[in-house]
């Protein structure tokens, strides 16, 4: 186990702004040599359904116009999308993504229904134990 404390992210809202920040923070944590542990729950799980990242994420209510401007700017900068950022982070460091068992059960989705980057479907207990001692950010 690494001596570096893990950097933990709980993503509960699957809007475009949250997914973008998930990608940025995950890649940054991996850059810094931190184990990154991601718990995907709530409406965010939809983007982690198999192939879900190919669909345009929902724009945050009330910020549709600025989010469109941000997306246009990111395209101009040729910034990787959130999914590619996580893939890159997984190649560079110790990054694991977990699906929430409660939401998976509620939606009737099994691991095979989810993006291959999901390591496993776990409960909050497992995630909290795995992420013990590290900083946790909720998106």
């Amino acid at each position: 186990m690494s001596d570096v404390p893990s950097f933990n992210i709980v993503i509960a809202t699957g809007t475009a702004d949250k997914l973008l920040m998930l990608g940025v923070l995950t890649q940054t944590g991996a850059n810094l040599g931190m184990p990154v542990r991601i718990f995907v729950t709530g409406t965010a799980l939809k983007s982690f359904k198999k192939g879900g990242f190919k669909e345009k994420p929902v724009l945050p209510a009330g910020f549709e116009e600025v989010m469109r401007d941000i997306n246009a700017g990111l395209d101009r900068l040729k910034t990787d999308n959130w999914h590619k950022m996580i893939e890159t982070a997984m190649q560079m460091g110790d990054v694991k993504v977990f699906g929430c068992s409660l939401m998976s059960s509620a939606l009737g989705w099994k691991k095979d229904d989810l993006d291959p980057m999901i390591d496993s479907i776990v409960g909050a207990t497992d995630f909290m134990i795995q992420s013990g001692g590290g900083q946790t950010i909720i998106l």
């Binding site: 940025v24 890649q27 900068l77 910034t79 990787d80 950022m85 560079m92």
Partner: peptide
């Protein structure tokens, strides 16, 4: 040049 956060630091780490 032309990449945005966290691209430059990712490139730095690769080097």
């Amino acid at each position: 040049k032309g990449t945005a956060c966290p691209g430059p630091i990712t490139d730095l780490i690769r080097a």
